[in-house]
Simulated assay, not measured.
Amino acid sequence: MATALKSLGNIRRNFDPWNDPSAQPLIEFDHVIKTFGDFNAVDDLSLNIFTREFFTLLGPSGCGKSTLLRMLGGFEQPTSGDIRLGGKSLKGVPPYRRPLNMMFQSYALFPHMSVEKNIAFGLKQDGMARSEISDRVAEMLKLVKLTQYAKRKPQQLSGGQQQRVALARSLAKKPKVLLLDEPLGALDKKLREETQFELMDLQQELGLTFVIVTHDQEEAMTMSDRIAVMQSGKIKQVATPAIMYEAPATRYVADFIGNISILEGEVETSSGERLRLSSEGAILEVAHAPAMAPGDKAAFAVRPEKVRLSRHKPLDASVNALQGVVWDIAYLGDVTLFNVKLKSGTIVRATVINSARVAPEQIGWEEEVWLSFPADAGVILKD
């Protein structure tokens, strides 16, 4: 099973120190708890992050991800537990003594300073020599492609350019770790997508460890080596984007990452990693399933791109075939999303790729359709 999971989906780069028992983590959260009054913002959380990893903390507002980042940065202190960097505890170490830097969502640029002075500010505070500051600022401006804007004030720049100034200032002191709190939240969708790839390339070029906080699933899936999905101060799953998407560990993770349909059922038979589930008046055959006994309740989750949609009954409708009525249609350009209502009222989603500009026989609203999928299309959720 572990081998099958490891091979799921594409990987962004050949980099997986978390699978090496001899690899030492750069950052360690050791049973960290953070309370505000009687509220547990972070609840007994343990987590390892490795050198040169692009690691994302993902979750809804209030899940504890920003609190975790602020504790790593030294802006909050754990109520209990320990945070270690390079094997050394960060207890009592103030933010300015930690070999890391933080880029805030608001960018926090000084409006009265030029771009180059904003970048130089932290270096001056550290007492770096003027000639070294000049060289470092020039290096950072070139890195973020803003050399020609060095003399401008922040208000004379676009949102994307301001974001790059903030990034250059964060990188100027050459920290071991860069912390990014919703760094792309103020950008429009197109610019955000472009900047995601710029950040990935920059992280690889500099060889730094990036820890980013976001609530944007697509952003996390695009940039990360690994993602930690958080809920109510706890981590629900840590995995690569491909495994997170294709093999979610829990119902919460499955529902939080992308579109998915979840069907409730009861195990009929189980043999090795294959089982049959009775659900929605049909038999669902599932490959790579966990060990379960006949009569056990289970939930089957399947992504819409794995579901085939047709007006016609499949040749083999004895397993993994469901009939329903088209309830909603959303044309998204590259794909069309169909919400199909089964007799029970359960909605199952299916996507159809728009590979041709004109579809000769479009499926319409309230049409009766069949849904089908192979045995390895979905996963069983036990939690």
Rank of each mutant, 00 (worst) to 15 (best):
I49V: 15
Q77M: 12
M71P: 01
L72P: 11
N40A: 06
L72M: 13
F50A: 10
G92F: 04
D82P: 02
E53Y: 11
K88S: 14
I49T: 08
G92K: 06
F55M: 02
S80I: 05
E76Q: 14
P60K: 11
D43L: 07
A41S: 08
T51D: 15
L45A: 08
F75W: 13
G64D: 07
L47N: 02
M71Y: 02
T51K: 15
F50G: 09
A41L: 06
M71L: 10
G62L: 09
L72I: 14
L58E: 03
P95N: 08
D43C: 06
M71F: 03
E76H: 13
D82I: 01
G92L: 07
T56F: 01
G86F: 08
P78E: 07
F50D: 03
T79R: 10
D44I: 00
S46N: 08
R70N: 14
T79H: 10
Y96K: 14
G92I: 06
M71Q: 02
F55R: 02
L85H: 04
V93M: 06
P78M: 10
L72S: 13
G59L: 04
V42D: 00
T79W: 10
L68N: 07
L69P: 12
S46V: 11
F75Y: 14
C63I: 05
L69E: 10
R97F: 00
G87I: 12
G92P: 02
G73K: 12
Y96G: 00
L69H: 12
D38G: 07
N40T: 03
N40L: 08
Q77E: 15
G62N: 06
S80C: 13
F55W: 01
Q77H: 10
F50E: 06
G74T: 12
G87K: 08
M71C: 07
F39C: 01
L69Q: 12
T56I: 14
G74R: 05
P60L: 14
L57H: 05
S61T: 15
T51R: 15
R97W: 00
A41D: 01
L85P: 05
F50N: 04
T67W: 05
L85D: 04
P60C: 10
